[in-house]
Each structure stands twice: as C-alpha cells, then as structure tokens.
Computed example of a mutant assay.
Amino acid sequence: MASKLARLLTDSRRALFTMLGVLAVIWLVQLVNWTDDYGLSREWGLRSQRLDELPDMFTMPLLHGSWEHIEANSWPLFAFGFLAAYRGMKKFLWVSLVILLTGGLTIWLFERPEAVTVGASGMVYGYFGYVVLRGLLDRNPLDAVVGVVIAAVYAYVLLGVLPGDPGISWLGHLGGLLGGLVGAWLFRNRSPRASAAPRPAAATAATTTGPRAALHKELEDLGL
C-alpha cells in the first residue's frame, strides 16, 4: 500500500514538472514567434491536403496566433495535461501521440486548403476526453471521480467541437477529443484489480487489524 502511494506521488511530481516544462517551451516559442511577426506560425503551421505539410502536425501545438490565443490555451493545457499524466508518464506520452495524430490528420484531411492552423487546443480537448473516460474504463474509483468532476465542470468546452467561429479550428478540437477517447480505450488497464487477488494470511492480518485498518481500506477503495 505504501509503495502504491509513493509511486502515485512520484508520478504526480513528474507530471507537474513535465507540464511546467511544456508550458515553458510553448511560451518561449511564442516569444520568438511574436518577435518574428508570427513568421513561425506561417512557416510551421499546418495546411491541409499537402503531403509536404503533414509533418507540421507535430509543430502546430507549439505555435499560437496571438498572446490571447496562448493565454486561453495555457491553463486548460496544464490542468488537463497534469491529470492525464499523473498516473504514469509512459502512458501519457503514448496518449499524447495518439491525440497529435488524430487532431492533426483531422485538420489535414478536412480543413480549408487556404487555412493555416496553429495552437494547442486540440491537445487540450484530447486530454479532456482522456481524463473523463479513463477512470470509467480502468474501473479506478479515484480516476472515475476526477473524470466525473471534470466532465461536470467543463462540459461547456464540448461546444468547441461544433462549427462556429471561422477563426477557431473546431476540426482540431474534434480530432483531439476523439484521440483522447481512443487513447483511453487503447491504453486502458487490462489487468485485474490487485485487491481482487488472494493475499497471504500474514498480510491480511496486518492490514485488517490495528489502528491503521480504516486508512488502508480507504486507500484501497481509491485504487491506491
């Protein structure tokens, strides 16, 4: 039990520093982009239906069209990214790749050819979808509660996957959201719950008696 809690804390610290690092890189790129009159966005933003532009799906999330644009994306990217990463960095990286691909390909296939798409909002929608669905698929009580709370508080963001403002890439939002849902399914926990496995008598006695029994029981119920 103590090892599970220690691992969760370690993974949470990694998730925190990872997302702080991601934000630092995005804001540094924005500063360079701004001083260049947003030339990086024009050069490395994603244009649809051109094979030579396809790799730009990997640079698109680092670029933004204005300071207001990056400010709007930064907080939800950090929050949803942290919640997506705190259960383990390896799974988080794979999920991020799926979101990048689905969001980028959706834009590349269906966006207007004259449009240049930039921004991390597709990743935001992807992490949102992943966090909401992950707890239900993994049958983890803590993650399920987190997902339900996030879905209830931020349900309004789903309006962003509908056609609306021509200056906002709803296709990127939709593709990112689908990537998060697919990632939650692909990388769901397929192993049986550890608490369901038989336990040695000595271990059982140690955790079901004594003053810490209630604490151990609560932590087990939370999936820790």
Rank of each mutant, 00 (worst) to 15 (best):
L62P: 10
A197I: 14
I70G: 03
L28M: 13
D37E: 07
D221I: 01
G45V: 08
Y127R: 00
G180Y: 01
V22E: 00
V25E: 03
H69R: 02
G210K: 03
L83D: 02
G39R: 05
G172Y: 01
A214T: 14
D37A: 11
R13P: 00
H216A: 06
F82V: 05
D143I: 02
V157G: 01
L158D: 04
I26D: 09
G167P: 04
D165P: 10
S191F: 15
D138S: 04
S3E: 15
M123K: 05
A85V: 02
T10H: 14
S48H: 07
V118E: 08
L5R: 04
A202H: 10
L16D: 02
L83G: 05
S12P: 03
S41K: 05
P166R: 04
P166G: 02
A144R: 15
G179T: 05
A194N: 11
G81H: 09
H69V: 11
A184T: 05
S74H: 11
L83F: 15
I107S: 02
H173N: 12
F58A: 06
A206G: 07
S66L: 13
I150V: 14
A194K: 12
N140D: 13
G223D: 05
A184K: 01
D138H: 06
N73W: 05
L8C: 00
G119Y: 01
H216Y: 13
V157A: 04
A151Y: 08
F92S: 10
P211M: 10
A214V: 12
L54M: 11
L9Q: 11
T204Q: 14
G147F: 10
R14P: 00
S96F: 13
N33G: 11
F80D: 04
S3T: 13
R47N: 12
V148F: 14
G129V: 01
G167R: 05
R199E: 15
L83H: 01
V149Y: 12
S66W: 02
S195T: 14
A115Y: 11
P76W: 09
T117P: 04
G183L: 01
L105P: 12
L105R: 00
R7L: 15
S12T: 06
V29M: 04
L63I: 12
R13W: 13
E71K: 06
S169V: 02
G104L: 08
A152W: 13
W108I: 12
G103P: 09
L101R: 01
F82Q: 06
L101S: 03
L177F: 07
M60P: 09
L222H: 11
L133N: 08
G147C: 07
R212F: 15
L9R: 07
W75E: 00
D221G: 07
L222A: 08
T59A: 12
F17I: 14
L219P: 00
S96K: 00
T18C: 13
A6N: 05
W44P: 02
L181G: 07
V25A: 06
T35Q: 15
I70D: 01
V148D: 13
R14H: 12
D165K: 03
L177E: 03
V157P: 01
W185H: 07
V95F: 10
A213E: 12
I70R: 06
M1P: 04
D165H: 06
V149T: 09
R188V: 09
A201T: 12
G45S: 09
V98E: 09
L62V: 05
A152N: 03
L5Q: 09
S12I: 10
S195F: 14
R193A: 13
V132E: 11
Y127M: 10
K4N: 12
E220W: 04
G179V: 01
R188Q: 14
